[in-house]
Nucleic acid binder design. Structure first.
Lengths: 247, 247
DNA sequence: AAATTAAGTTACAATTTTGTGACAATGGAT
DNA sequence: ATCCATTGTCACAAAATTGTAACTTAATTT
């Protein structure tokens, strides 16, 4: 199953560079030099992803992105922007226009490919939208809600209110329960790999998540694995440390 | 586990700045002011990563990168380029020359470190994540858990709680069961190769590991080979006659 | 058997890692 | 605009882990 990537880039040299690298990675690039060409191609081939140079002539990049987002058929196509420089304003308007990720030039081929795969991974959600139940929690990604089956009121699951990051964190951990992730892995998978965020920030969000769960009596679901990272676990009881044998 | 980074940079001030920040992050920088020095060092220490200033005298940066890529031994060493400015031509030739990532000056120390770690993260791990079972023990690296099949309750494996080093030690020994390793080899493989740690420290960790295993009745799995080192063995019972010779 | 060497064992201080609350910056909503 | 929620980072506290020294026991050599 081939993955088609529409490359919208006016600079021929870069277009070719990208094209070359995409092919090398088993992706099928199709190229457009401007927004008009791009619009035509989108209608013809419906690509799986759009790689969009921000600095198109007439600054039509934003407009093209908006256009994609307006049309139902193209609404969900992921967009990665290429920006020549880290321009805060660009970034913001880019994200507003609906870009899924952005890469600043110059970029390494490896990074480009990594980003593309990351975005595609997100799209064909490796973390699906399935409802997940574990450890007395139920998370419903499509409704963006979390419910808890409390011990004292088994019939009625009550909703747990989480912030955006806490939600994503819990969702990811539940989707891969029992498995340990390092802080860096969590940053990569939950925050995205273009961020330069301190590892310790993960701790704080874990803390915030735990705080909420504790409040409803769900403890030890999010476990620390010392020297490694964190894990969601409901299958194994924590070792009662009190198994001391007298010596 | 120490990671050596070769910094190729002619500007002493920048060299020092980088060096300082690398050290602060637990990396081991070695510096070269030009391509010739760098070439020598690469052969001597085989760094884990090269941080290469693009604007070396005689524009020898590209040449050095190409040189690294030509040699089998250095082919896979990741290269991060430092560019003073976003130059299209430079970029392309840099990517052609095989750089893995780019950083444009001026850069923040944090970004520098983040990039380096990102690149290093892509390296393949030396021990796989396979589940290993031996001697009634099961170690699951992805879950970061160890289970024991106890003799008296065969159905239900109970979890064994280990500290980080104990876990790594057991994992390594189980991954190479029946094979004897000297203390120095264990230090190299488990602690990393730069450590100034006493050989006898291994004894203590072996002791700690054994203590946990003894507690659940798993004895003699970690065996001493006198005058040599230690081994994980489940295939051969210790010879009972040898266990206690009457004195 | 005494001497010598290697390994087992324990206790402890130093270091590392993680938990936790506070803070300022940001951005959205009213 | 103001208010409110969220976010990332920091600083300090708490907890777990680690390396080493010192001492004991066991094995090997003389």
């Amino acid at each position: 199953m081939s993955v088609t990537v529409l490359v919208v880039e006016d600079e021929p040299a870069i277009q070719e560079l990208i094209s070359y690298n995409l092919k090398k990675s088993g992706l099928a690039p199709i190229c457009a030099a401007n927004a008009e060409q791009a619009a035509v191609m989108v209608n013809n081939v419906l690509p799986d992803l759009v790689l969009l140079d921000w600095m198109l002539p007439n600054s039509s990049g934003i407009e093209f992105a908006r256009q994609l987002r307006r049309n139902t058929r193209t609404q969900t196509i992921p967009i990665i922007m290429l920006t020549a420089k880290v321009e805060l304003d660009d970034k913001i308007s880019g994200l507003e226009a609906g870009a899924d990720d952005y890469i600043t030039k110059p970029f390494s081929p490896r990074e480009l490919i990594a980003r593309i795969k990351a975005v595609l991974r997100r799209r064909v959600p490796e973390i699906s939208d399935e409802i997940i139940e574990a450890g007395g929690l139920k998370i419903d990604p499509t409704k963006h809600r979390v419910f808890a089956y409390l011990d004292d009121a088994p019939a009625e699951p009550s909703e747990v209110k989480l912030g955006p990051t806490e939600f994503r964190l819990l969702h990811f951990l539940m989707a891969h329960k029992e498995r340990v992730y390092t802080r860096t892995q969590l940053l990569d998978r939950i925050w995205g790999d273009h961020v330069f965020i301190e590892d310790r920030t993960v701790d704080v969000h874990i803390r915030r998540l735990r705080k909420v769960l504790e409040k409803i009596g769900k403890e030890d679901l999010v476990q620390t694995v010392r020297g490694t990272g964190y894990r969601f676990s409901s299958e194994y009881e924590l070792n009662p440390e009190e198994q001391h044998q007298e010596s």
